[in-house]
Design a protein around this nucleic acid. Sequence first.
DNA 1: GCCGTTTTCGGCCCGACTGTTTTCAGTCG
Length: 574
Amino acid sequence: MPVHNAEIAEILYEVADLLEIEGENPFRVRAYREAARTVENHPRSLAEMAGEGEDLTRLPGIGEDLADKIREIARTGTLRQAEELRERVPPGLRGLLGVPGLGPRRVRELHRRLGVESAAELERAAREGRVRRLPGFGAKTERNILEALGRKERPQRFRLSAAEPAARALEEHLEGCGAVREAVVAGSFRRRKETVGDLDVVACSQEGRRVIEHFVAFEDIERVVSKGSTRSSVVLKNGLEADLRVVPEESFGTALLYFTGAQPHHVALRDMALKRRLKLNEYGLFRGEERVAGRTEEEVYAQLGLRYIEPELREHRGEIEAARQGSLPQLLAQEDLRGDLHSHTTATDGRSGLHEMAEAARERGYEYLAVTDHSRRLRVARGLDERRLREQMEEIDRLNEELEGITLLKGAEVDILEDGSLDLPDGVLEELDVVVCSVHHKLRLPEREQTRRVLRALENPNVNILAHPTGRLIGRREPYELDVERVMEAARERGCVLELNSNPERLDLNDAHCKLAKEMGVKIAVSTDAHSADELANIRFGVGQARRGWLEREDVVNTRPLGELRRLLRREGA
DNA sequence: GCCGTTTTCGGCCCGACTGTTTTCAGTCG
């Protein structure tokens, strides 16, 4: 059983936490965290790369030492260093780092002076008033600790789609304050990350106090965590935390840059600034006392000798190097899309009829919409058998006669059965414009079998698109065990397309896989899997994820005009 | 522990807020 990247990353994160509690050099601690981050975001299996003797030190933040440690974990599933640390640092202490207000220093003090080794022991000590007697602690800190322990609320992350309404409402509320020129939700929300932990809001205004007062009066606030003259932090009623920073106009660009992150991206920019004898902070880019940029992000990048980097790319995954060389991708835009290649109707589990779906697609400015209802295996969705599918095909032909400005493509989302065969006979698949296939059952097969199953499905010459290729549901279900790289190789050889499913619960392929697909020369379909006319609008989440995966117009098949798309779907030249 | 148009040694982002302090440490983002 190969060791997954997530497991390697977890061990590195743990080592970082334990070293930090031990009082290690913070830069060493950071090195472990950065390496963990690199590992967990890497689309290829580090264990496999290590097994094949690839040079791991080429990855950012990984040098000889950490490469050795990663190889050790890949080989043995564990790390001696981590085991030794666990001997020295009680494992419960690690959990205390998650308590708001407690950092490594305080955790260490609590352990050293009070013998606290777990959340329960901390709670007892606080109740008995022993915490407030420690130097640097006080009554208020003790009370805050008790409150935090009492809340027990996991610092949960919200799906992008769940955070979006709050983000828009907050922007609107702030712009309703007379003193605000512009308010933008930055952070991972602006980077269109699939989940967001909090909302980082930047407001442009000369009157900090007034804006802060307006901010904390927002109706959906549960409680105010902190409130200063330029900065405030609140928890919204839906549990999401929102942090506001108010900056003057001349600093708006640098503040936006700072709060959009991601942190490693911004740290790298600061580093570049230092090398040019400049100083970058949220107030501006300075040479000595002189502000040389700050009003817009564009001018800051320009001063650093970089092309403008779109927020979705700011993850420190090579975008700075690309910006320096002028080789940044021209990212996919929603307007580039000419149609949607995965949708359902009332014939199966959709909630809108053919006509309604067609109209909605036309209103979006699309040229085509593929109707891809489920196949018979999916009983809960009343999947179509050959007879019902043929009826639908005839109906689509009739409808296409009367529709103007939009073409419905005849399709199906065919289940891949356990042995890799398809759930509808080849005879009818041959007559469809587009065949989407996907795994809906037997999700827990071992990797070898699951991979073999999918590869066999792609061998069917009628198949065009593999839908939601890893089957994950964000926050609810892990991806199934699948060798994605092998699937991509097969897709490339056979002229198959992989889907980026825009359903905000799926976003599958993920960003890293999209980037890998691009590098491997595999084409992507950005589709919604809409189950109603309204859900066609979910495409914005898919586009965001595609952009995070560096995808350009040419990488995405549904940017093609209909004629070209049809040629592509015939898998000619494959 | 990483990294190199200032460096193979000596840097490594930096400012706001809170709470516990009479001048600052710790935490957070």
